[in-house]
């Protein structure tokens, strides 16, 4: 468990700290696969597989493809010290605000015993197609709008002649 946590922390820092965008993308892929490992530890096997296929597969391939297409260069120049200091203070406050209550009060114990069938494809599919049927259909419309919108944004007028 702690090894996965260390991988996630290190690769998340890598995403932010690497100067070359392609190195950031590779760090993010490592991060996403490690998060899939976390999902598997939490017995959400369906989500672990979807995480690897959708995030580490489809989305990151798209990102790496765009980096290749735009030939993005390394970031140059340094950042002003006061900006980094201000950010460190603000983000520290946010982090302590999120984590503080957990550390001081702890977390309430779970009421129900863990059920081994929760998190399988069958259980998720059953809930998705009964209780969450309308959001599921709305999600498919959202994806379709996304595809058409991406086409509209990325197409060029030159394409009409060729």
């Amino acid at each position: 468990m702690s090894l996965t946590f260390c991988i996630i922390f290190a690769s998340a820092c890598g995403v932010v700290l690497m100067r070359n965008p392609i190195h950031s993308a590779l760090c993010l892929i490592v991060n996403l696969v490690a998060v899939a490992g976390i999902f598997a530890q939490l017995e959400a096997h369906f989500l672990a597989m979807v995480q690897i296929i959708v995030y580490a597969g489809a989305i990151m391939v798209l990102v790496v493809f765009v980096i290749m297409l735009l030939n993005a260069k390394q970031e140059e120049g340094s950042y002003s010290t006061w900006l980094i200091g201000l950010l460190a203070v603000v983000s520290g406050f946010i982090f302590v605000d999120m984590v503080g209550p957990l550390l001081s009060e702890g977390f309430p114990q779970s009421a129900s015993a863990t059920d081994p069938t929760v998190g399988t494809v069958e259980a998720i599919g059953r809930v998705l197609y009964t209780k969450y049927l309308f959001p599921f259909e709305a999600a498919s419309i959202l994806i379709m709008v996304g595809v058409v919108g991406a086409l509209m944004l990325a197409k060029t007028d030159k394409g009409k002649q060729g």
Binding site: L47, V50, Y55, V127, L128, L142, G146, G149, A150
Partner: peptide, 27 residues
């Protein structure tokens, strides 16, 4: 996992759907 239900995992599924749409539009 802590509560013992499936609703959180369904929410993650929809977050992934939105992330995929966002990736297409954002890029």
């Amino acid at each position: 996992r802590h509560v013992g239900g499936l609703d959180g995992e369904i929410a993650v599924f929809f977050v992934m759907v939105v992330a995929a749409a966002e990736a297409a539009i954002g890029l």
